[in-house]
Simulated scan of single mutants.
Amino acid sequence: MDNALYDIPDSWKWVTLGDIGIVVSGGTPSTREPEFWNGDIPWITPADLSGYDEIYISEGARKITQIGLDYSSAYLLPENSVVFSSRAPIGYVAITKNKMATNQGFKNLILPSSLINCKYTYYYLKTIKKLAEQKASGTTFLELSAAKFKQIPIPLAPIEEQLRIVEKIDELVSYTNISIVNINQALENANLYLKKSIYQLFRGNLLQNGHRLKILPDGWKWKTLKDVGEIYNGGTPKTSVSEYWNGSIPWITPSDLSNYKEKYISKGQKNITELAIEKSSVKILPKETVLFSTRAPIGYVVIAKNELTTNQGFKSIVPNEKIDSSFLYYFLKSITEYANKIASGTTFLELSTEKFKEIPIPIPPIEEQVKIVVEIEQVLNNTDNLINELVIFPKNWII
């Protein structure tokens, strides 16, 4: 066969999908005809397979009626047919657990069970997403035609060998799934260890041989956030004034911290001008200012790597000489749950300046703050190393 992808055993042969079964496309009954819908015939779209981890599928989000089937290009597939999404996106695969129909986003294979095993075909099709995309065409989105789908090569083993291969893959998938559960549990334990360790460090527990203390250690004092530095609100220059934007001064919003993993930040998606600062409530914050988002959402924390500004979604603390900015950063990272509890609002929760200022914080001497930061970052480093050692397989991983 000219399009053989790799060498196979002598008892095998390269064929095409069109050789091994009947290829049928799906269809969608008119949505303007209510009698075509809410029947008893399962009908699936590629969206039903988004995030779907099972091999077999019995139904999707919607069902059609017999008349909807009769008056559309939808086709009633028998059980053990293999469905393959051919657009938006290409490459979702499942086996029908019962009779069902699909929309036109699928190319479907009805297989002769005596010649080819449906799970053997399923597992193979899980590996050919890139090949299918290469054969697809389209401008708005790629789509794999029925003719191109039929031409996709598949190595056909004798039926007994197919069954042995399926059995082995099933065994490996089962082992992999168990491994994923164990790995994810280990990750959860690592993150819990991290949170617990930081929580204990702030109360002096790990500094006192691990014993939980009901009172603060000697030299520590309870203060509030208003005692540890100057607190500033941010602001937003008028977006309708072009002279306020695209300057040289970084301007940070909570959205800049979505999925942001670093401790320090130097810039966001937008910059503002000096004129914007003169004409709005925005203030330039110095290096080492600690930013805490107080709405949409509450709890993002970062340290300014350089002079910058923020919008009104932050309360920012410029620490005084008795507070280490990293110590304050890690403390604020530990109080997200508490901050959300004391916030208020109907459309979204927001932590007011008054409540933010009154949040209590245990303050050790500056030398001990530095020591705590070192220990926290050692815990973080150990946790990161543990997580990096855990290989995470995607849920639909297959050999």
Results as ranks from 00 to 15, higher is better:
Tyr330Gly: 01
Ile154Gly: 01
Gly219Lys: 14
Lys195Val: 04
Glu54Gln: 15
Phe356Glu: 02
Tyr75His: 13
Ser86Gly: 06
Gln378Cys: 11
Cys118Gln: 12
Leu187Phe: 03
Asn233Gly: 14
Lys214Leu: 14
Asp170His: 09
Gly268Thr: 08
Gly105Phe: 00
Ile152Asn: 00
Asn259Thr: 14
Glu35Asn: 10
Gly91Gln: 00
Ile398Gly: 01
Ile90Val: 10
Leu5Phe: 08
Ile41Asn: 09
Tyr52Arg: 03
Ile90Asp: 00
Leu69Asp: 04
Glu307Pro: 00
Ser326Arg: 11
Thr236Arg: 02
Leu275Pro: 00
Leu390Thr: 07
Ala304Leu: 05
Val181Met: 09
Ala136Leu: 05
Lys357Pro: 05
Leu5Met: 14
Leu285Val: 07
Val318His: 02
Gly247Lys: 04
Pro394Met: 07
Ala4Ser: 11
Asn108Arg: 06
Asp384Gln: 14
Lys195Ala: 10
Ile198Arg: 01
Leu349Thr: 03
Lys196Ala: 15
Ile178Phe: 04
Ser85His: 01
Leu285Gly: 05
Lys287Asp: 08
Ile399Glu: 11
Tyr124Phe: 13
Trp220Thr: 08
Asn184Arg: 12
Ser50Pro: 00
Gln200Ala: 11
Gln208Glu: 12
Ala132Ile: 01
Leu69Thr: 13
Lys333Cys: 11
Ile215Thr: 15
Met1Cys: 15
Ile20Ala: 09
Ile398Asp: 00
Ala157Cys: 07
Pro153Lys: 03
Glu59Leu: 04
Asn3Gly: 04
Thr176Arg: 14
Glu133Ala: 06
Glu54Tyr: 12
Gly68Phe: 01
Val93Gly: 00
Tyr199Cys: 08
Ser197Lys: 08
Asn177Tyr: 02
Lys126Asn: 09
Arg203Met: 11
Pro250His: 04
Ile90Trp: 00
Lys126Gly: 00
Phe84Asn: 00
Glu35His: 11
Leu332His: 01
Ile154Asn: 01
Ser11Cys: 14
Gln200Arg: 14
Trp222His: 13
Leu386Gln: 06
Tyr199Gln: 15
Lys126Met: 07
Ser344Gly: 12
Glu389Asp: 11
Tyr6Cys: 13
Ser248Asn: 15
Asp53Lys: 15
Asn320Gln: 10
Glu160Pro: 01
Trp397Ser: 09
Thr309Ala: 13
Pro78Arg: 12
Ser240Met: 09
Phe348Thr: 08
Ile387Ser: 05
Leu125Ser: 04
Ala296Asp: 07
Val318Gly: 00
Lys261Pro: 05
Asn381Glu: 15
Tyr193Ser: 06
Asn209Lys: 15
Lys287Ala: 07
Ser145Cys: 05
Thr139Arg: 03
Ile265Asp: 03
Tyr120Gln: 06
Gln185Leu: 13
Ile116Met: 06
Leu115Met: 10
Thr353Glu: 12
Trp14Gln: 10
Leu206Gln: 10
Asn189Phe: 06
Lys322Val: 05
Phe292Gly: 05
Thr239Gln: 08
Tyr264Glu: 01
Gly91Ala: 02
Ile298Lys: 03
Val228Tyr: 01
